[in-house]
């Protein structure tokens, strides 16, 4: 137990950035758009959030700035793929490369500056509970927000009319268009939402997880988030489960090493991707299973004229 609670706390911090980014990407993909630029949007959120906290001293300002940075990056992507009909995959890759470069440029004077980290908020009453209180009710604001977002997105996608329309656009943009819905507008919003969530994820990295700025500090977490969406079969609660699983694996392997249990750490580093490939294999074997949840129009460009 002495070891379990601290390990669990570390898992929560490792899972939160994955959760934000994957939830955002999931909503984008549900609208039928594949944005491979998660890493780029995330790293921009990280640098803008860090610059903002450094300049203003306010975490609230920093979080808003990071969200805005993610939205701006996503808007560039949306403009290219929706307005100019650029292919989604190369545009997303370009966005990642662009984000890494631009963040490095903007962060030149931020290297070597320390920040104390986000304050923890203890929920009155609940925080005093044994075990559960320490784990779930003495966290920083963004951890609470990430869990709340799972519920909100689940509710939105599966219980509201707007969510239904979003899913319809992702499954068959032609049908949604024929029904009179503005496919472009809905996809634009979904992409921007994905950007905002990636920005939050970046803010969590540079403000709470390892509160500092260093180039390329996302270190591939954007790609893990992308894999996570497929792993979770585009379901919010499964994204939550997957993020904590992926986070848990990476933390437990560190503990295993420190305890002298010999699992090659390289194997652990590939596990998230292996798990994703496995899920891909399983769901692609059964067409009906994909049809159940994978957005049918994912990655296909939409021309209203057709």
């Amino acid at each position: 137990m002495d070891l379990l609670i601290p390990a669990m706390l570390t898992i929560i911090t490792a899972a939160t950035p994955l959760l934000f980014a994957a939830l955002g990407e999931m909503v984008t993909e549900k609208s039928g758009v594949l944005n491979l630029g998660v890493e780029g949007m995330m790293v921009m959120g990280a640098i803008i959030g860090f610059i903002a906290v450094h300049a203003s001293g306010s975490v609230t300002v920093a979080i808003f700035a990071a969200v805005l940075a993610g939205i701006c990056m996503a808007a560039i992507f949306a403009l290219f793929v929706l307005t100019f009909h650029a292919s989604q995959v190369p545009t997303g890759l370009a966005l990642t490369i662009f984000g890494i470069g631009l963040s490095a440029l903007m962060g030149q004077n931020m290297v070597g500056i320390a920040y104390g980290g986000m304050p923890k908020i203890a929920i009155p009453g609940l925080a005093a509970l044994p075990v559960v209180g320490t784990l779930f009710f003495q966290q920083d604001f963004l951890v609470y927000l990430s869990i709340a977002m799972v519920a909100a997105i689940h509710y939105f996608l599966h219980k509201t009319r707007a969510g239904l329309i979003l899913r319809a656009v992702g499954d068959s943009h032609d049908a949604a268009h024929a029904m009179g819905y503005s496919v472009i507008k809905i996809r634009f919003m979904a992409i921007l939402f994905g950007g905002a969530m990636a920005g939050l994820s970046g803010a969590y990295l540079s403000l709470a997880y390892s509160p500092m700025w260093v180039e390329q500090m996302t270190a591939g977490r954007g790609w893990i988030a992308l894999a996570l969406v497929v792993f979770a079969c585009w379901r919010p609660v499964r994204v939550l489960f997957g993020a904590y699983l992926f986070g848990g694996i990476s933390i437990l392997q560190l503990h295993a090493q420190a305890l002298g249990i010999g699992i090659p750490s390289q194997v652990m580093s590939m596990l998230p991707y292996l798990a994703t490939i496995l899920v891909l294999v399983i769901i692609s074997r059964d067409v009906s299973k994909i049809k159940l949840n994978a957005p049918a129009s994912l990655g296909r460009p939409f021309h209203p004229s057709r």
Binding site: A7, L205, S250
Partner: peptide, 22 residues
């Protein structure tokens, strides 16, 4: 603890936490 990277602030920090917890 091996982190298989020269540079991954998040993972390096996690490794430090795991070691301190132990």
């Amino acid at each position: 603890v091996w982190v298989n990277s020269w540079f991954d602030p998040g993972k390096e920090g996690d490794a430090a936490k795991a070691l301190i917890d132990q």
